[in-house]
Each structure stands twice: as structure tokens, then as C-alpha cells.
Amino acid sequence: MVKARTSAAELVVTGHVRVNGVRETSPGHAIKLGDVLTIALDRTVRVLKVTAFNERRGDAASARVLYEELGTRN
């Protein structure tokens, strides 16, 4: 959703991320398979379901297969 881990952590700390409908403010919160993430980005809200994990960080293309897009709202 964002290019850098620091940007992702900032989204969490500022309250732009929900995990299973509950606002998350700790960037270190563990995410599990099946969790639903709601992420507010600029003027868009994306809802994603975690379907897999990578053992190592990868590029954007490899990340796209790790979640299912449940919806996008403007």
C-alpha cells in the first residue's frame, strides 16, 4: 500500500489502519492469516484480507498475491 515500512508505521500510529474493524495504533501488532485490514490512504479506503505471508520482504508484485481485495471506497 505504501513503499516504505516507516510510511506504513506512520499510517498505523496516526490511526489510518483497522484490523478486523478495530483501530490499531501499534505498528508492531501481529497480523494473522484471515485478518481484514482497512487502510485509509489519501482519499481512498482499501479493505484487504490477508491470505498468505512471505518469508522475506519483496517487491510490490510479490506482495499482491498475499492479500485479497475486498473493496475500495472513495
Rank of each mutant, 00 (worst) to 15 (best):
V22T: 13
T72R: 14
R73K: 15
L66G: 02
I31V: 10
N54Q: 11
D42P: 03
L11R: 01
A4F: 13
S62I: 11
R73P: 07
S26L: 15
G28D: 09
A9F: 03
G15N: 05
V22Y: 14
N54K: 07
A4P: 02
R43S: 14
A30K: 15
L70K: 03
K3S: 07
V17L: 06
T38V: 08
E68K: 07
V47F: 05
L66S: 04
A52M: 12
V19A: 00
E68S: 09
E55V: 11
T51M: 08
H16L: 05
N20C: 10
L11T: 00
V65W: 09
D35V: 03
A61W: 07
V45E: 04
T38E: 04
M1S: 07
N74C: 15
M1P: 04
V45N: 00
E24I: 10
G15D: 04
K32D: 12
G58C: 05
T51W: 08
R73W: 11
A61C: 12
A4S: 15
A52Q: 06
K32R: 12
R18N: 12
V50P: 00
G28V: 06
V36H: 03
D35H: 05
A40Y: 02
T38D: 04
A4I: 14
R5S: 11
D42G: 08
H29T: 15
V22P: 04
R57Q: 08
K32V: 09
A52D: 09
I31F: 04
M1F: 10
A8I: 01
T25K: 08
I39H: 00
I31C: 06
E68N: 09
L37Y: 01
G15H: 09
G21Y: 13
E68Y: 05
V22K: 15
R18E: 11
R56F: 11
R18W: 09
G15L: 06
V47R: 03
H29E: 15
I31D: 03
K49I: 07
E55W: 11
A63S: 12
D59H: 07
N74Q: 13
G71Q: 08
L66P: 00
V50H: 00
E24Q: 14
P27I: 05
V12R: 01
A40W: 03
H16T: 08
R64S: 11
Y67D: 02
D59P: 09
V13T: 13
V19D: 00
A60E: 09
V22R: 15
